[in-house]
Simulated assay, not measured.
Amino acid sequence: MLSSLKTPPRDRPVSGLRGVRPAERLCHATGTVLVLSGLAHLVVFAVDGGPWWGPVSWRKPVTFGLSFGLTLMAVTWVTSYLRIGERLRTVLLLVFAADCVVEVGGITLQAWRRVPSHLDMETPFDTVVSMTLAVGGGVLVVLLAVFAVVSFRRRPAGPEGMALAVRSGFAVLLVALVSGAAMIARGVVLVRTGHQEAAYDSTAPLKPLHGVSLHAVLVLPALAWSLSRTSWSGRVRWRIVATAVGCYAVAVAAAGVWAVLTF
């Protein structure tokens, strides 16, 4: 679906777009594979059973495969509206795609080994996997922060409301990344102080905030793109996007309050 949305802004140089298209196709293909992996593990869960919640469950390869796959495809599409050098964008997207594969791969591996993927330092191998996932999360924060900064430094191209949608999407996505980093940091501290089980439970309050804010970078720009296909005026389309941004902000704020109250 996202590949069909990839309508490059008219004012982007054609030569630059031609140079980045193979990377875009690779990122969309990789995202598709990750989504299919998540769906495949949903079938595994249906067959194998077991708990859905908890540090060891088929839920993690399902949700992470779907989330990382959709996010990779969304970021690949949305960044086509950013005013950024094509070579830099290509490098950032390829590193982002590789990092997504590492994250989902590590989580899936540990699910099949029937051990936790995050915060598990029971054995040297589990420690390597856990730390690799943590470092990969840091890389994600840096890459997406760069895209977010670019979106605010120079107004993104595209139809009416797209600039607001892209900027808001990246801003909300950064909330998801910060909440994810907070979960890992809090868990690591508890593990290092000998509270392994408490570390697994400590991530629960931030999960709603992390989940709600993760896909704004897809939902909001997709709304702006869809509205550009209507006959409504630019002012009406912008107001609809602004309303959607406001609703998303309220949802994120509510999830944040829940996190504070349940910590």
Rank of each mutant, 00 (worst) to 15 (best):
L227N: 00
E122V: 14
S226F: 10
P8V: 15
R239L: 11
V78E: 00
T30Q: 07
L143Y: 06
S37R: 12
P22H: 06
L34W: 06
R167P: 04
S37Y: 07
G65Y: 11
L209Q: 02
H41N: 14
P208C: 02
A198I: 07
C27D: 08
D120W: 06
L70N: 09
H28F: 15
V43K: 05
L174F: 04
V35S: 00
I107Y: 04
A74T: 13
F170P: 07
D99Y: 02
V14Y: 13
V166T: 15
V129F: 01
L34D: 11
V178S: 04
V14M: 09
W77V: 14
A176E: 12
V14C: 01
V95N: 01
H118W: 09
M131A: 14
P116C: 07
V47E: 02
H215Q: 06
R12D: 14
R12I: 15
L206H: 03
W232R: 14
A46C: 03
V260S: 01
P205F: 01
R12N: 14
L133H: 02
L218I: 13
T203A: 09
P9F: 09
A163N: 04
R87H: 12
A145F: 13
L26R: 14
A181C: 03
L174S: 11
D201E: 13
I107F: 03
A98Q: 10
V101K: 04
D120Y: 13
R235F: 08
T243I: 08
V91F: 05
V260D: 01
S3M: 11
T32N: 11
E86C: 09
T7F: 05
A163T: 09
C100S: 15
L17P: 14
M183F: 07
F152M: 13
W58K: 08
A224N: 02
I240D: 04
T90W: 04
D126A: 13
K207W: 02
R25A: 15
R186P: 04
